[in-house]
């Protein structure tokens, strides 16, 4: 394996460069996936049928908490990548750990929120609007859940194997994924929650 030392570790081999480009393209496909889910949601957002409307179920507090948790985690993973670039394994692991904990917190709040909705009689089966809402939020939430598992696995590898071109590459790609989930959340926050509460 040829390692080019003039480049950051995560870009240092030919294979690493290919993987990063491949992942960017994959994120392109993810954008299409979420755009489609948004389109479905917007199409159905007025179809409450006999169920509650958006303004009746949405509550600002949990959504604000989720937003703050996820935005902060995006910041800490950025710090983690910075730590990785300057070669500090310990700082990198700390920041990644914080990121995953924040992600876990986000997931906890989101699950509580879903449980509240269901208790209020707003289930996925109630109306087309709620089907669209749960599917959009659920897909994002499932991505976060997968991210927690994936991030945990990477953290373990960094601990065991140190910062190699391989682990650095995985960590960097994971950070791209995490930032992407954050961006999707900003859209959900603005165009689903804020718009729905207005």
């Amino acid at each position: 394996m040829k390692i080019d030392h003039s480049l950051p570790l995560e870009y240092s081999t030919e294979e690493n460069k290919l993987k990063i480009l491949g992942f960017w393209i994959f994120l392109g496909a993810e954008i299409v996936l979420f755009s489609t889910l948004f389109a479905v949601y917007f199409t159905l957002q007025g179809n409450f049928a006999d169920g509650p409307s958006a303004s009746q179920i949405f509550e600002l507090t949990p959504v604000m908490i989720e937003t703050i948790l996820l935005l902060t985690s995006s910041f800490t993973i950025g710090l983690g990548i910075h730590a990785m670039r300057i070669g500090s394994k310990k700082a990198m692991m700390t920041f990644f750990g914080i990121t995953l904990l924040l992600g876990l917190g986000f997931l906890g709040v989101e699950i509580t929120e879903f449980v509240t909705y269901v208790h209020e009689g707003a289930t996925m089966q109630t109306s087309a609007f709620l089907s669209g809402l749960f599917t959009l939020l659920g897909t994002h939430g499932a991505h976060v859940t997968f991210g927690l598992l994936w991030g945990g696995a990477i953290l373990y590898q960094v601990k065991k194997r140190g910062l190699t071109p391989e682990t650095a590459n995985k960590s960097f790609i994971f950070s791209l994924y995490w930032h992407f989930l954050d961006v999707v959340w900003i859209f959900i926050f603005s165009f689903v929650y804020l718009k729905g509460m207005m």
Binding site: Q45, G46, N47, F48, A49, D50, S53, S55
Partner: peptide, 15 residues
């Protein structure tokens, strides 16, 4: 379709 019509509920006495 009840596009954005939240007052749909109040129109309908039973709900």
């Amino acid at each position: 379709h009840h596009h954005g019509s939240e007052n749909h509920h109040s129109e309908d006495a039973s709900t």
